[in-house]
Design a protein around this nucleic acid. Structure first.
Lengths: 187, 187
DNA sequence: CTTGAAAGCTAATGTCATTAGCCAGCGATG
DNA sequence: CATCGCTGGCTAATGACATTAGCTTTCAAG
């Protein structure tokens, strides 16, 4: 291998810097190249194209995010774990809003494994609620919807009123927990 | 006024067609111009630039969406209204996924009025729950987060497992309602 | 009939992504 | 030690787009 100047890894790192500073929309190959001190076409030696770079960035962030969530639930269970996970979720988003926004929704096979891990963490946090198979999936989806929805709206600046956001979020957590409790194992 | 061929209104209409067919990412001035049978620069006679077109499209969609939600709660109240509103929310999203995705988050002053209307509808649906001022705001945020989060994840293809999405969503609705019931008017 | 603004057009510029094809450095091989 | 081939970087070129400048045509009002 010749001059090991750049690398796929390094490119993703630079991309993350750009995302952090200016948001996912500012992530262009031209910007990465400039930061790497290299001509734009050179990047194609390390990354297939912009779309792939986005996927790599998304995967990296998702992984970091999952790790953060996982750390939050360690040694906890039941309501405690659920609260911790949801708080960690928002804490991550508030601290790294651009990074979080860089997570791609579309089910890229490349990131499937990481997404799976995230789901596992969610399901583990729900374990104490005695949900039978399918019900646990539904519950996990709800929790995810709640946390993600709040995150998106908050970082998007959709909550304009002066009311305290922490308080709103705690209410949301309470809602999820209350909903899990009264869970009727129907059909 | 000379040849009344195009108009700001018409341009937004064409833009909506493109969004519906190919998603918000496909909304370019070039595409709109092609559809209008006109050279791209001509559009600047009707719209300041692409950014403004996006805002206009977003506003139009938000308005339609709010109207849809409003219709759903008419003549209903309490849990009934809440359920109807949340179901209408998702129904709209499922029917017009691209349109919904075209709604901009950032608080554009131009669309502030419509956003306000949406909040009003939400608050009205919550009226039966006897929430004091601030608590109603928090509750409305939670409901919005839940519905929006589910919508985003569903349209983004984030729910991969085979479990029925309707069932997941009904559980989410139950969660919100349960959460509103046990609402402790603390602090 | 004249005229002026509205609405369209062409030409030009700048930013990106992406492809093609060239060149240099370096490590392994003989 | 000389060379070969890979690797990573470069320049040039193409093609979307957005956007601006400046020209032209058309129509309606006087």
């Amino acid at each position: 291998m010749a001059r090991a100047a750049l690398s796929s890894k390094a490119v993703v790192g630079l991309a993350l810097e750009i995302v952090d500073e200016s948001g996912p929309a500012a992530l262009t190959l031209a910007a990465v190249a400039a930061r790497a001190g290299v001509a734009p076409p050179s990047l194609y030696k390390h990354v297939r194209n912009l779309a792939e770079l986005r996927v790599l960035v998304s995967g990296q962030v998702m992984e970091e995010f999952a790790e953060h969530g996982n750390a939050a639930v360690l040694g906890r269970s039941g309501d405690d774990a659920l609260r911790a996970l949801m708080r960690a979720w928002r804490a991550y988003v508030v601290r790294n809003p651009h990074r979080y926004a860089a997570i791609l929704q579309s089910p890229e096979p490349a990131t499937a494994a990481i997404a799976e891990r995230l789901v596992d963490i969610l399901l583990a946090a729900l374990r104490a609620y005695d949900l039978e198979g399918s019900q646990a999936i539904h519950a996990a989806r709800c929790m995810r919807a709640a946390a993600h929805g709040f995150a998106v709206l908050e970082t998007g600046g959709a909550f304009q009123l002066p009311e305290d956001l922490d308080e709103s979020y705690e209410l949301l957590i309470d809602m999820v927990i209350a909903g899990l409790r009264r869970e009727p194992p129907r059909s």
